[in-house]
């Protein structure tokens, strides 16, 4: 299925996605979109793992399982994060990340 596509392509793709996610994390103002950026990041990691696994170490399944667990953890994380975000919304009546700065210095 992947003949003619060097592994580097996948890696570059993942890297772009990863840093796009980072960019989103750093710039989005809405807490939920930040969470979405995190999902991008995790997704890119998954691509990495799978690409490595398929191209270089196809005799084992480490990468695949790692991706699997990452997805599961991401789900759990998202659930908790969202419940906190909702709580934030109740407390602050906003989910703008820049307004959540009662504590500083």
């Amino acid at each position: 299925m992947n003949a003619g596509i060097p592994i580097q392509y996948f890696l570059i793709l993942a890297a772009i996605m990863f840093f796009t996610g980072i960019y989103g994390f750093l710039t989005r103002r809405n807490l939920i979109t930040i969470l979405m950026s995190v999902e991008l990041i995790l997704n890119s990691v998954n691509i990495n793992f799978l690409a490595f696994n398929r191209y270089l170490y196809p005799h084992k399944l480490d990468g695949m399982f790692f991706s699997l667990f990452i997805i599961a953890v991401a789900a759990a994380e998202a659930a908790v994060a969202i419940s906190i975000i909702i709580n934030i919304y109740r407390r602050f009546t906003t989910i703008n990340v820049e307004d959540v700065d009662e504590m500083k210095y």
Binding site: L26, I34, V97, E98, D101, Y105
Partner: peptide, 17 residues
């Protein structure tokens, strides 16, 4: 340097990254 600890999550993340 207290500005480093601005309370802004994204600034923290920026520094982190």
């Amino acid at each position: 340097i207290r500005g480093l600890q601005s309370g802004q999550l994204q600034k923290y993340a920026y520094v982190f990254f």
